[in-house]
Simulated scan of single mutants.
Amino acid sequence: MKQHPKLAALAVVLEKGKLLLVRRKNEPDAGLWGYPGGHVDLGETALAAAVRELREETTIIATPITYLTNVDVIISNETGRVDHHFLLAAVLCKFQSGTPTAQDDVAEAEWFDFNTVLNAELPMSKNVDTVLQIALQHMRNGASSNK
């Protein structure tokens, strides 16, 4: 049986100078901080999946704004065989309401200052800082999740 990359969506939520991150319970990336998100269901857009997964994992309500970037996550074992391949669609989301509460497959959900992320002060999944930089540049160019 031929394997294919799995499509997933990430919810990038910025609010009042802070970024919402979750600490994963399960592999891959167990114990690391990253964006709320998960699989895209058949017939569901990545925009819709991002806000659905956000709500399921953190109880935060948001609306999708735009796609920011795509991130390939390819994890190989010691023999070089690919164990996991995810294509992650990073979606900028506008915060609506809620207080982060860890649900589903996350251990913690918290708001962090941008500099905490950009200075790599947390154990994070790959590309969390890069996606934040893209989101901040997008906001500087006219789109804001705080309006």
Rank of each mutant, 00 (worst) to 15 (best):
M1C: 06
K2P: 15
H4N: 04
P5Q: 08
A8H: 10
A8P: 00
L10V: 02
V12L: 01
V12G: 00
L14N: 01
L14D: 00
L14M: 09
K16T: 10
L21I: 08
R24S: 13
K25S: 06
E27T: 08
P28H: 10
D29T: 07
A30F: 04
A30P: 07
G31I: 08
P36T: 06
G38D: 06
H39I: 13
H39Q: 11
L42I: 12
L42Q: 13
L42D: 14
G43R: 14
G43W: 10
L47C: 03
L47Q: 03
A49S: 15
A49E: 06
E53I: 07
L54N: 03
L54S: 02
E56H: 07
E57D: 05
T58K: 00
I61C: 00
T63S: 12
P64T: 05
I65T: 05
L68M: 03
N70P: 02
D72W: 11
I74W: 04
I75G: 01
S76E: 15
G80M: 11
D83A: 11
V91D: 00
L92C: 05
K94F: 03
Q96E: 15
Q96V: 15
S97M: 05
S97I: 04
S97W: 04
G98K: 11
G98Y: 11
E110W: 11
E110T: 09
W111C: 00
F112R: 02
T116W: 04
V117I: 15
N119T: 12
L122I: 11
M124Q: 10
K126P: 15
V128C: 00
D129W: 06
D129S: 14
T130L: 12
V131E: 00
I134R: 01
A135F: 05
L136T: 08
L136E: 01
M139A: 07
M139W: 02
A143K: 07
S145C: 03
K147M: 11
